[in-house]
Design a protein around this nucleic acid. Structure first.
Lengths: 136, 136
DNA sequence: TATTGTTATACTCTATAACTATA
DNA sequence: TATAGTTATAGAGTATAACAATA
């Protein structure tokens, strides 16, 4: 199924396009996206969500903090933990990323009928379920 | 279109699974795959095909050569160029990668009817065309 | 004892720039 | 002059291991 490889690769490239123009890498964008979806959280939670080591999160948060996109603060009840949250600039950036993604999706599906879109969405959901089941 | 992001991400993860067990990284696997598809070629051709710098190809070929998966040889007509080709071990490895990919695709589409598969293949081809057009 | 985040260290992928050999 | 591949250097992402502070 060489086609599947190609689609996976090209879809990935497409979804990444525009990040560099915003001064972001894929890893940093994923961290921002996680904060946008689930709100402020401890680095340990980010480590679990992004499936990378705590050390890796330290580096990503350092870089995003230096760019003013996220802020560290004390955890209210656990003095070991550090809360990471989006700054106003970070919120604006994730909103812009969302618009980029929406524009990309709209280009891809510009001439699809609503029945075609419905069938595609069905496929995507089933693929998501199967791949998640396979990875976990 | 958050679903599209998730599918792109999970599909990429799924296609990569198994590489580490074979001692490969994604970048090295892509170079091997290129050689398997198009046969032996100069490093400059690999640089163009993989869309990375010549310096990057040097490093990847160094690593694959050290693992005995590819071999460098003199170009027959251009003494500046270096031909890169798969060794027997490299051919066996790409064949195994192909089987891994096929098994993954079969798992994903195990319970799909042939009409569903046909419609999905149509979608994939159209997506490929659109994304390629957008990237180039 | 276990968890949270850090420092220390190392490997891979990637890039640019300067250089050599060849075309 | 231009191209093919290399050395030199640098930055980003990733990992493991050891450690301090806290739970």
């Amino acid at each position: 199924m060489e086609r599947l490889w190609a689609v996976a690769w090209l879809l990935g490239e497409g979804m990444q396009s525009g990040l560099a123009e915003r001064g972001l890498t894929l890893a940093r964008a994923e961290l921002l996206w996680q904060l946008q979806r689930n709100g402020a959280c401890a680095q340990s939670a980010l480590s679990a969500a992004l499936r990378v080591t705590p050390r890796n999160i330290t580096g990503l948060v350092d870089a995003l903090e230096a760019d003013g996109l996220v802020a560290r603060s004390a955890h209210p009840s656990d003095r070991r933990a550090t809360l990471v949250s989006l700054t106003e600039k970070g919120k604006a950036t994730t909103a812009a990323m969302g618009r980029d993604q929406e524009r990309f999706a709209r280009e891809l599906f510009a001439d699809a009928s609503s029945e075609e879109l419905a069938s595609l969405v069905g496929w995507l959901d089933r693929l998501l379920g199967r791949i998640r089941a396979r990875l976990d």
